[in-house]
Design a protein around this nucleic acid. Structure first.
Length: 204
DNA sequence: GAATAGATTGTCT
DNA sequence: GACAATCTATTCT
């Protein structure tokens, strides 16, 4: 099943970041590593749009070693370390020189589940498997080594599910960006309604 | 179910 | 030296 999936083209990422974030819901992330294959349906994602968006790492035009990937060409991976112990996975979007990215906050794991369960130390069908950005990276086996990786290769990519399931999409403010003032209240988080793997319960 | 504390490290001021 | 787009275990109710 998973081996029949083909990477979405770069044109998928080379669009406005809010469009990509919304369109990412229902897409499948695949990571094929030496350990094996792991994949899931994206059920929650957030858009970050520097330099004007004060919640983005690229806010105010910040361009450092850490944020460099955000400024690069669309269709690449931006990963960063949170709180010294969890990685977060983002899609670089829009165009080179525009530091926009989509944070993948939650996925619904797809079989085979054994590798993801082993990496998380949890039984299958536990929603804690992948209901948060750090958990997604742990389950998929993503970390700093994947920084800047091209998402249009068979190693790490997004794919369409072939339109088998049409997600009902909800919107809400982004999670844990209170420091960004008015920007924190923008509804730039997208999620699949009623999906049990969505991290923070939306109030809709 | 909600609230809280503690973990732990690369990056930037 | 402060801090971060978080997670987990624990301790409540």
């Amino acid at each position: 099943m998973l081996d029949r999936l083909a990477p979405l083209p770069r044109s998928f990422y080379a669009r406005p970041v809010l469009t990509v974030a919304r369109d990412a819901i229902g897409k499948i992330v695949v990571h094929a590593s030496e350990e094996g294959i792991a994949a899931g349906r994206i059920v929650e994602a957030e858009a970050y749009r520097g330099p004007e968006d004060r919640a983005a790492h690229s806010a105010g035009g910040r361009r450092t070693r850490r944020t460099e990937a955000m400024w690069g060409a669309p269709g690449h991976a931006y990963l960063f370390l949170l709180y010294g112990m969890h990685w977060a996975f983002n899609l670089v979007t829009t165009a080179e020189g525009e530091p926009h990215a989509v944070l993948i906050r939650a996925i619904e794991p797809l079989p085979p589940l054994d590798l993801m369960c082993a990496r998380r130390g949890l039984a299958a069908n536990r929603r804690e498997l992948t209901n948060g950005p750090g958990k997604v990276c742990a389950a998929l086996g993503l970390d700093g080594r994947h920084y800047g990786m091209d998402l249009c290769t068979p190693r790490l990519f997004l794919a369409s599910d072939g339109g088998t399931r049409r997600p009902r999409i909800g919107r809400s403010p982004r999670i844990n960006v209170d420091y960004a003032g008015a920007w924190a209240r923008r509804p730039w988080r997208f999620y699949e309604r009623e999906n049990r793997y969505v991290s923070v319960k939306p109030r809709d």
